[in-house]
Simulated assay, not measured.
Amino acid sequence: MPPYRLPTYHRQGPAVRCINFLCAVLLGLVLIAGIIFFVLWLSLRPHRPKFYLADFSIPNANQQSGLANLPVRFTVAEHNPNQKIGIYYEEIDASVYYGDELVAKGPIAQPFYQGPNSDIALQGQLTATGPTTSDPAWGRFSAELGAGSVGMRLVLTSTVQFQVKMWDTKHHHMKAECDFTINGDGTLKQQDKNSQCALYF
Rank of each mutant, 00 (worst) to 15 (best):
I108E: 04
S118A: 13
T127M: 14
Q110W: 05
A128L: 01
A104P: 07
T132W: 06
P111C: 07
A128M: 02
P116C: 06
K105L: 10
A143Q: 15
L145T: 03
G139F: 10
E144G: 00
Y113A: 10
T129A: 12
P116S: 08
F141K: 00
P111T: 10
T133F: 04
G146D: 06
T132E: 12
I108S: 04
P136I: 03
P131F: 01
T133Q: 09
I120P: 00
F141C: 02
A121D: 14
L145F: 02
A121K: 11
Q125H: 09
G146F: 01
D119W: 11
T127I: 14
Q110T: 12
F112W: 10
Q125Y: 04
Q125D: 05
P136D: 10
G106S: 05
E144S: 07
I108V: 15
I108W: 03
A121E: 12
E144F: 01
D119Y: 10
R140T: 13
G115P: 02
Q110G: 05
T132G: 13
L122T: 05
L145N: 06
P107N: 09
Y113H: 11
T133Y: 04
P116M: 05
P131H: 00
W138Q: 02
P107G: 09
Q123S: 08
T133I: 13
P136A: 08
A104D: 09
A143N: 14
T133S: 07
E144W: 01
V103S: 02
W138F: 14
P111R: 06
L122Y: 13
G115D: 12
N117T: 02
G124D: 04
L126M: 11
P136M: 04
S134N: 14
A128G: 03
A137D: 04
L145M: 15
G139W: 05
Q123P: 00
P111L: 08
P107Q: 08
S134V: 07
A137Q: 09
A128H: 02
Q114N: 09
T132S: 14
K105S: 15
A109V: 10
K105H: 15
N117M: 09
N117E: 11
A128S: 14
D135W: 06
L145A: 00
P116N: 06
A143D: 14
W138T: 01
D135Y: 07
R140E: 12
S142K: 15
P131D: 01
T129M: 13
A104I: 07
G115S: 12
L122K: 04
W138H: 02
T127H: 11
S134M: 08
T133C: 05
G139P: 00
A147T: 09
Q123R: 13
N117A: 13
A109K: 13
F141Y: 15
Q123M: 10
Q123T: 06
P131E: 00
T127F: 07
G106T: 05
S134T: 12
A143M: 10
Q114I: 04
W138P: 01
G146N: 08
S134A: 11
A109W: 03
A147C: 03
G130M: 03
T127L: 14
P107D: 09
N117H: 13
P136G: 05
G106N: 04
A128I: 03
G106P: 06
S118D: 15
S134C: 00
P131I: 00
T129R: 15
